[in-house]
């Protein structure tokens, strides 16, 4: 479409050189934006490739046993990711078990119970928790939470739950204050705002008509919530939970301070452990030897694969919900 394309003139001057220049600018601009967009793809591809390349020596040396062994000995150059994977999974699981009900509760409160005046400030306050950098959670966890857990919560847990037949094994051992449980609690606080915010957004998309129908039939607030809102928002909720899980799996600084840096798998939640990201953060700059560095990058590759899968699945679910939401 070649027209004058110029600024203000009422006289239509069709200057072929001017028009041609405009076309060139258009091509340049379009190419620039396209390259920037493709760069995003390249970054992800680059991350995957560089991780693969860095991890290759360890992967080829250890093979599949890398993922199944617990040993982590930099001196004899024997590395296995099992302790790190275990720690990552367990701390994230604890975080989810604590944060999901709490996040659900907060979303419920904000959508149903909260007086309209307080809705905005409380909502903002909860989301501000998400803005706090993770290193702050780490130092708060180490200096404030861990001593409290060591002196009060953990002895209580050991005394009351330590002797139960099955669950008891989870709460054995001396109260160190730091460890897998503490890391899980700190992660839960970190992930809580995300889950609360996502669930709240999802609950807000429920058509008021559906809820009103429920109330019209005489249902209580909770019944409407549980039987109308939740089924409607199921996909979004799961998406939000998985997004939170993705964050918890990859969190580094909050965990590094309170996990205890022990490459061991213990049955007790009160024991120190390690996660993939805290192992990398703690040991990378001092790793001597190619196999050690490569093993750490292999850990990074594992984390990338795990989080990528979880986050991709979460995004897919949230997108489905978005599309459905617009259709209503």
């Amino acid at each position: 479409m070649e027209n004058s394309g110029s600024e203000t003139d009422t006289v239509a001057i069709i200057d072929p050189r001017h028009a041609a220049k405009q076309l060139i600018y258009e091509r340049i601009f379009r190419a620039a934006t396209l390259s920037a967009a493709i760069l995003v793809l390249l970054i992800l591809g680059g991350v995957a490739l560089s991780l693969l390349r860095g991890a290759w020596p360890a992967v080829s040396h250890f093979g599949f046993s890398f993922v199944t062994r617990e040993i982590w000995n930099p001196v004899t150059d024997q590395f296995g990711a099992l302790a790190a994977i275990y720690g990552t999974v367990v701390t994230s699981l604890i975080a989810m078990l604590l944060a999901v009900p709490a996040g659900f509760g907060i979303a419920l409160f904000l959508t149903e119970l909260c007086p309209p005046l307080l809705k905005r400030p409380i909502g903002v306050a909860v989301e501000l928790l998400a803005a706090v950098p993770s290193i702050i959670f780490g130092i708060w966890g180490l200096f404030v939470l861990a001593p409290v857990l060591q002196r009060h919560a953990q002895p209580w847990l050991i005394a009351h739950l330590g002797h139960l037949p099955l669950l008891g094994g989870l709460f054995k051992g001396p109260p160190f204050g730091i460890g897998v449980l503490t890391a899980g609690v700190v992660l839960a606080i970190m992930v809580l705002p995300f889950i609360a915010a996502t669930m709240r957004e999802v609950f807000d998309t429920v058509p008021p008509m559906l809820k009103e129908s429920g109330y019209g039939l005489g249902a209580t607030t909770w019944e409407v919530m549980w039987n109308v809102v939740v089924p409607h928002s199921r996909v979004g909720m799961v998406g939000g939970i998985m997004l939170g899980l993705g964050r918890a799996l990859g969190e580094t600084m909050a965990v590094t301070f309170v996990i205890g840096n022990a490459h061991r798998i213990s049955s007790s939640l009160l024991a120190p452990g390690t996660t993939i990201s805290s192992a990398i953060a703690n040991e990378f700059t001092e790793a001597v030897g190619d196999l050690y560095t490569s093993s750490l990058i292999a850990l990074g590759l594992l984390l990338f694969l795990i989080t990528f899968t979880v986050i991709a699945a979460a995004q897919a679910m949230l997108r489905r919900l978005e599309r459905r939401g617009f259709a209503v």
């Binding site: 580094t252 990338f304 979460a314």
Partner: peptide, 9 residues
């Protein structure tokens, strides 16, 4: 996905 990816990676 990149938005939520672990920054250590």
């Amino acid at each position: 996905v990149l938005l939520s990816a672990p920054s250590i990676i």
